[in-house]
Design a protein around this nucleic acid. Sequence first.
DNA 1: TCACTGTCAAGAGCAGTGCTCTCTGTTTTG
DNA 2: CAAAACAGAGAGCACTGCTCTTGACAGTGA
Lengths: 224, 224
Amino acid sequence: MTATRTARERARAELTQEIKDEARRQLAEVGAHGLSLRAVARELGMVSSALYRYFPSRDKLLTELIVDAYNAIGEAAEQADPGPDAAPRDRWLAIWQGTRGWARAHPHEYALIYGSPIPGYAAPQDTVVPAARVALALVKVLTHTELREVDGEVPPELRAQTEVLTKALGIIAGPETTARLLMAWTQLFGAISFELFGQYVGSVDPADAFFAHSAKRMAEFVGL
Amino acid sequence: MTATRTARERARAELTQEIKDEARRQLAEVGAHGLSLRAVARELGMVSSALYRYFPSRDKLLTELIVDAYNAIGEAAEQADPGPDAAPRDRWLAIWQGTRGWARAHPHEYALIYGSPIPGYAAPQDTVVPAARVALALVKVLTHTELREVDGEVPPELRAQTEVLTKALGIIAGPETTARLLMAWTQLFGAISFELFGQYVGSVDPADAFFAHSAKRMAEFVGL
DNA sequence: TCACTGTCAAGAGCAGTGCTCTCTGTTTTG
DNA sequence: CAAAACAGAGAGCACTGCTCTTGACAGTGA
């Protein structure tokens, strides 16, 4: 019956989760490169070949970890947002801080999604939606908010791209604003990556003040 | 004699170079993670253990490749600069384009230096100076140029950091300008990373127009 | 109750890895 | 010319991802 079947499936789901947890733990210790199925199995008290019942390959396991990480950082961004009642600038800053906070708490998972792509590994379509969550959280702040209009010419090629984006996201904003939003998005993750990957060592280290300053300036920059 | 000694040493230097070249070739094919000493040795027609006469470990080889990559991208940036006779905005844009051009031509070497840090690998002091070359090229455009003064409060913590930087770099610029320069530097590499690491797929792809636009906006942003 | 079926873990094995060691042959040096 | 320094070869260790086969077990229909 379904009862027994679910019992089995529940055990399976639990072990799957345990494998991912242990893999995440190892990720934090040795990085994506050093993640070893055998070591995960060993830690879980099972033999390596048994893991292949749950994940067809090391890459598939990594893919799941990647999707989880995208969702986790996206959720962190969304959770940080105080909501539509707060001042837009405060929301913007909170989302930046929330995103950075998660990244600092999970540097190896962050590196997994925003670091060097894993060679021979193509991001499956599953990652597209979770990957956009942080950006969407930022976009949400701009909607139903009066934006200072930003001026500037946008070349036709870029204008076409921004128009596709505004349509897809359902935002009412000119090409220049959309382009600046993309720049802000780039700045956010550029700053986090530089901080986590050690590029700020020797210049802005610790980066707290600089990060908050950047968030503020980029808010102005997009017209918030 | 020095002649004979240089004969041996020259052979050694040549083989060292060949090893690095082959390693770079492999890097482009399989990435840093897949770089294999055995495969390099095989391709060079020698046995793996012989490589250890030239590089004490795989990590040391990687370190050399990293330093080389920093120097190469720095040189690309410097070469792209049309020099002090050109208009500052043109110089700025050219440096951005030159940096991006090198990165696109050597994505795996770029990933090596601006991607996820290699776990268990600490960047040696040797990388600090080469790592700053691109930033210095940008700074050079600002010196001896009349900057539009940019306004904005800078919190004391960040102000202290910018003051250390302006002293070290010998630039005459206020804290806000320096902070904005740091943001531009972050934007430059954030955009290149996003492009190479696939984050722009589905939004600004190809990124040529957006990149040029970003360069222009960031030039204005720093007061150029 | 009994045979059948699907699931699971275990173990051996393959081809590959970084790295160390010892051995032999060559080149350089005193 | 003998001694010392150096170069490469080869074997070997402990490890990796992954495949294939084998034996044990749980649930199901006759």
